[in-house]
Structures are given as C-alpha cells and as structure tokens.
Nucleic acid binder design. Sequence first.
DNA 1: TCTATATTTAGAGTAATTCTAAATATAGAT
DNA 2: ATCTATATTTAGAATTACTCTAAATATAGA
Lengths: 133, 133
Amino acid sequence: MKPIDNLLQSFGVKPTPQRVVITEFLLASTTNHPTADEILEGVQDKLPVPLSKATVYNTLKTLVEAEVIRELAIEPGKTRYDANRSSHHHFVDLKTGEILDISEGAVEKIPINLGENLEISHYQITFFGKIQG
Amino acid sequence: MKPIDNLLQSFGVKPTPQRVVITEFLLASTTNHPTADEILEGVQDKLPVPLSKATVYNTLKTLVEAEVIRELAIEPGKTRYDANRSSHHHFVDLKTGEILDISEGAVEKIPINLGENLEISHYQITFFGKIQG
DNA sequence: TCTATATTTAGAGTAATTCTAAATATAGAT
DNA sequence: ATCTATATTTAGAATTACTCTAAATATAGA
C-alpha cells in the first residue's frame, strides 16, 4: 500500500484515487500553498477520469475536517491549503505573494498573558517581508 | 467640523456623507470587525439616500488605500475591516467567532531571526481560544 | 454660474464556493 | 461472486462575495 494511503487511513479517511492525488499534490507543494483552483489544475491529469471541482472542494473539506491539512486565510478572498501538519507559522513575501512555512522552533515562544478571561488554545504568526535574492 | 471629517481629511480622503458614516460605523465596531455586508446593513439607515453595495466596496477600498482602516483575513472567504490603527494583534473566540483586538503592548516582542534571506517588515499574531464567562 | 472632475448609484458581470440530483464505486452481508 | 446499502464523484445550477459599467448626482474651482 502506498504511504499516502496509510496516511489517509490513519486519519480515518478512505483513500480514494481522487483523495490520494490531491493529498500527494498538497504534500509536494511546500512553498505555494495552492488554492482549490490551482489544485484542480495541477491534479486533473493524474487521474484516468475527469475530476470535478465539486470533488476538489469535497475532498479539501474532508481533509480539513480530518485534520490531514489546514485551511489558510492569509490574503483576503482566497483560501489556501497547507499539508504541513507540524506546528508552524507563515512568511509572506510582499513582492511575489509566495508563502513559506516557518517551523515553530524558529520563533521563540511568546510568554503570553492576555488577561484572565482569555484562554488561549493556540496562536499563529504571519510574518510579512522580503526574500533576499 | 466633525472629528471624523478631520480624521478623513488628515488621511487625504474627502469626507463625503457615505465615507463618514462608514468610518463612524467601523470606529464603533470594536469587537466585531464587520464584513462589507454587515457594514451596508448597519449603515444604510444613517443616510437620507439609498446606499449601494458598490459604494460600500469603493469606500472600503479607498479607506484601506489611505490606511485609515485595515483589511483582515482571518476566516477563509470573508474579508473583515478594522478601524483600529494602532499596531495590534487579534484574538478569535473559537465559540462565537468574535474577534478582539490585542494591543501590541500586551504581547512581549518576539526576538526573531528567520535566517539571513528573510527580511521581516512586520508580523501579525492571531490567537485562538475561548473567552471565559 | 459654468465646467471639469469625483462620487455614487443600480444593476450586470465575474470568481470562488456550495448545492443538487443522478451516476458510479465500494464494503459488507449473503 | 452477487446483492444491497452507503459513500463518493460528477456536471451543472445556485449562491455569495466582490468588481465593473455606464448613467446620474454632487462638488470644487475658474
């Protein structure tokens, strides 16, 4: 059995061909965090049957709910998807819009206390800047 | 002259009635960070003329470009607007979706070094958690 | 007041996402 | 292997958030 099949199984998701190729595509997309359209575009040739956008959206929803992938709200109006399951932050290149993952270990832990009434479960930092040539 | 008129003037934005009521509405919305639709809904009675959604979107764009307000990408698919111009982060209540501003001073500065090739211009933290009753 | 420019408007258009209903695939019972 | 119930996928319609267009209105400066 393919390793992706195992991954999906272990998250309780039945590994259909559509889900497998979409998950593979996302795992291979380390710096672009594609949108649903980009996923459809990048994946449709990898199946012997036509792939509909409804399936892409259904699959992404299934994978998000099973916590195989994460949804990203970085630019207004566009939902991007991220298959990096380790805790991490993001760096957005102000020139190109490229989005890099920043491992949690790269950023010192913030000592936080926002007051007694705010119980923090997690936080997410988005850095904006330029990638040096 | 109204203080809002002055505020808009000082950012180089001509204070039309539509812009004034939209800016007032946003300044009064400290915990909900409304969407364009919520703004249209909340503001249309405050003018003697009908307010069109094109005007709401035009005005929001003008205000964002003039840096009177900020656009927020927190939930996928919805753009929210924030008239708090001081540097701040956000706290999202996982139960209600309510979004609170967290002043920059409430969070210790992070000593950051993401490597030589990443030049950070600013960062933005989103905290997720629960507001204690 | 006149004229040029800016702003606003209603409604059409577009892009991203969701819904619907039918077709196909799959898993488990026989 | 076959049958049947359930899950998945599909094409296309529908919805939502947003943008565009062209005409009407308002405003600023000559």
